[in-house]
Simulated assay, not measured.
Amino acid sequence: MRKIYLLALVSFLMLNCSSDSSESEPINEQMYFPPSDGSNTWETKSITDLGWNQNAVQPLLDYLELKNTKSFIILVNGRIVMENYFNGHTATTPWYWASAGKTLTTTVTGIAQDEGLININNKVSDYLGTGWTSAPLAKENLITCKNLLSMNSGLNDALGDDVSPANLQYVADAGTRWAYHNVYVKLQDVVAQASGQTWSNYFNTKLRDRIGMTGGAWINNDGLSVYWSTSRNMARFGLLSLNQGKWNGTTIVNSNYFNQATTTSQTLNQAYGYLWWLNGKSSYRLPGLQFEFNGTLMSNAPSDMYAALGKNDQKIYVVPSMKMVIIRMGDVANPDNPTFALSGFDNELWDKINDLYQ
């Protein structure tokens, strides 16, 4: 009799474990990576499979279309859950990343450091020579590659996008002032100089081609190099970022470096890493302002989210706790209030996204 009881108990426990496993399976299943050979193959996962709310899908799509969106993708565990195109955009149409592409520069800078070509703690003039700014030499020599990654170079952010020496003027000592500045692109020159290759060639061979971001390209726009690609290629980079620099078991960039990149990088702006925006901090600063705001960057988004944010609402949201990546490309969501990075659209969009799974 006792044996029968024990067998029944074991069977009951196994059934319950099986049921629990099934409910959590979409999050706990193995991470998927699409092939890197340029094929269009990509596994999918349905809203129903995830146990999400199908009734919340259409309101989200209506909102995205209303807000001038061109493409929207959600990945969970690497699989496509939603992929939608609007306003004449298609899966094969390239679009610009704007400042969301800063994180590509972050990643390639880390790759160059992994290869021993550079050290981000070294001063920029070690690679570019002196005179790359118009700051006094002693002040210029304070600026490290890490300062460029962290946006605390101390150079004047009010002089426009031009990064010629005459336009890179001293305001404060490096490390003492946070300001959103296009001077970060000098890291591309650092990598090119240290590698003996063009920036595009080094980027293509070390990052783009290794994760199958086929067809994307850097295009010069008023002296700045801006990345253009399809939405799926942006999603590939988001998936690499979710996996802390690893792609299907292969290390693209060192995970320790990637963790540093997605952690507060300086004491002036808690919500900023190495060109990545960080949610869940107690305060943040925004481009063009020397003012600290209390509270988290996006109150409606998960606190562990980090994001690549670009002008006119180009977005890569990465949420480790949900093993989720979200991509948004398009025109500015709120034309009356254009911004360089964070916008009111972020919180509004997350309100709609939350309806899918809460």
Rank of each mutant, 00 (worst) to 15 (best):
I353C: 10
M151E: 05
G330A: 05
Q197T: 10
P59Y: 14
L242G: 00
A261F: 06
M298S: 11
T69Y: 10
S200Q: 14
N84F: 06
A91F: 11
G88K: 03
N16M: 13
P165R: 05
W276A: 01
D126F: 13
N347T: 12
H89R: 15
D62Y: 09
D209I: 03
S134N: 03
Y202P: 00
T230W: 02
Y306G: 05
L155I: 04
A172G: 09
E348A: 08
P136S: 08
V81G: 00
K123P: 11
G196V: 12
T106L: 01
A261Y: 05
L104D: 04
N233P: 02
S99G: 03
Y202W: 12
A138Y: 14
F340P: 14
E65R: 07
N204W: 14
S225F: 14
L278V: 02
M14Y: 14
V319C: 12
G212N: 01
R177V: 01
K246N: 15
N53G: 01
I111R: 01
Q244C: 10
E23V: 06
M298C: 15
L9P: 05
N337L: 13
L159P: 08
I4C: 13
V190R: 00
A100K: 04
L168H: 10
D189A: 08
D126M: 10
G295K: 05
V57E: 06
A194K: 06
Y306H: 05
L142I: 04
S125W: 12
T263P: 06
L148D: 07
C17G: 15
Q244V: 02
I80G: 10
T103I: 02
E348P: 08
S255E: 02
L15G: 13
G154R: 08
N279Q: 05
T205K: 14
A100F: 02
A166L: 13
L7S: 15
D49P: 01
T176C: 04
L278I: 01
V108Y: 02
G110N: 05
W199V: 01
L356S: 07
E348L: 04
D161L: 11
K139M: 14
M298R: 13
Y85E: 07
E140P: 02
A174I: 00
C145G: 11
T339F: 10
N87S: 06
S134P: 02
I118M: 03
Y85W: 01
K3Q: 14
S99Q: 01
G154E: 08
S39V: 02
K146M: 08
T230G: 07
N201P: 08
Y274K: 04
A301D: 00
G110V: 00
V108G: 00
T92M: 09
Q169F: 12
W42P: 08
G175H: 08
G273S: 07
Q113S: 04
T176N: 08
D313C: 06
I120R: 05
D37S: 10
L168S: 07
A308E: 07
Q188A: 12
A98S: 09
N141T: 10
M1P: 12
M151P: 03
D336Y: 15
T93I: 11
T69A: 07
V124F: 07
